[in-house]
Amino acid sequence: MEFWQALVQAPLITISNLVLAHYRALGMTNRQLIVYLQMVSFTAAGQQFPPIKEIAQRTGLTEDEIYGALHEMLDAGFIDLRTQTDSAGKQMDWYDLTPLYARLAEKYGQSNPISDSGEPEQAPVTRQRLFDEIEVEFGRPLSPIEQETISAWLDEDHYSPELVSLALREAVLNQAYSLKYMDRILLSWEKRNIRTKADVERERANRNRF
């Protein structure tokens, strides 16, 4: 019973499939990935500057190996070390794990092949690609609640992955990195019977004429 209670109470972590698919292409080693995943786990539990000793105990790596992996990731721009001051004036260090997603965004933006016409070919927006796109643009993993929201758009509201991706583009253009903003866009489009990419482009063309 204690195990199942601990299992239910343990915080969930999410990691983009893009990280697992492309970490080697970015130059990240297996050891660095293991340490990075442990950092994600500690951050989800509220520890943004976890003790090196605890990471070593979890991974079986030595403390020197952990230090080495962290310094390598800092030098490579996969993570960043930041300092913040609390209300009492005390300074605290914490690890920012989002730079890795910025590196992925650079790679992701260069991955579209070029067609015969010289224009980038857009790959079909699949369900998984949509989740990956949102994580890259938001610069962080999606929370379980956010994943449920996106799934509801697809499964209950029957929005296509392509339409949700277009709503993401609109949100990014307006520097609004939130699902609530995307939801308002999707609801607005639904009221105007905008359901496809062609509908969105037609709406934009009409808007630009005025």
Rank of each mutant, 00 (worst) to 15 (best):
M39N: 08
D199K: 02
E54F: 09
Y159C: 10
L186F: 05
R24I: 06
A102S: 14
N112R: 15
E135R: 08
K197A: 12
D93S: 11
I185E: 09
A25M: 07
A69L: 08
S87R: 14
A69W: 02
A69Q: 03
V172R: 08
L179G: 01
I79M: 05
V19N: 03
E133Y: 06
R169A: 07
P124C: 13
P161D: 03
E137Q: 15
H158S: 12
F3C: 00
L97M: 11
M182I: 09
S160A: 10
I145F: 13
R169E: 11
A56L: 02
G46W: 08
A205G: 00
E121Y: 09
Y159N: 11
E119D: 08
L70D: 03
N193F: 14
T85V: 15
D96G: 12
H22V: 01
D155Q: 11
P124D: 13
L166A: 05
A152H: 13
E119T: 09
I185T: 12
T98W: 08
E201P: 03
I194S: 06
D64N: 13
E190R: 14
D199V: 02
R31H: 03
Q91L: 09
P11G: 11
L154W: 05
A76E: 13
H158T: 10
E63V: 03
E146Y: 04
T14F: 06
K197P: 02
V200T: 09
T62E: 09
S111V: 04
E2P: 13
V40T: 10
D155Y: 10
R58H: 06
D155M: 10
L12H: 10
L187K: 15
R207Y: 11
K53Y: 09
S16A: 06
I52K: 15
G46H: 12
E190N: 06
T43N: 13
T62G: 14
A102E: 14
L74Y: 12
P124F: 12
R195N: 04
S188W: 02
V35M: 07
D93I: 05
P50D: 11
D86A: 09
I13M: 10
L173Y: 08
R202I: 10
A105K: 15
I194R: 01
V200Y: 03
I194M: 04
R207C: 01
A6W: 01
P50V: 09
T14C: 07
R195W: 07
N30T: 05
R103P: 07
N17R: 10
R184Y: 07
A152M: 08
S16F: 03
I145T: 14
A6Y: 05
F131A: 05
D155E: 14
R192A: 14
L18A: 11
T126A: 08
A6S: 12
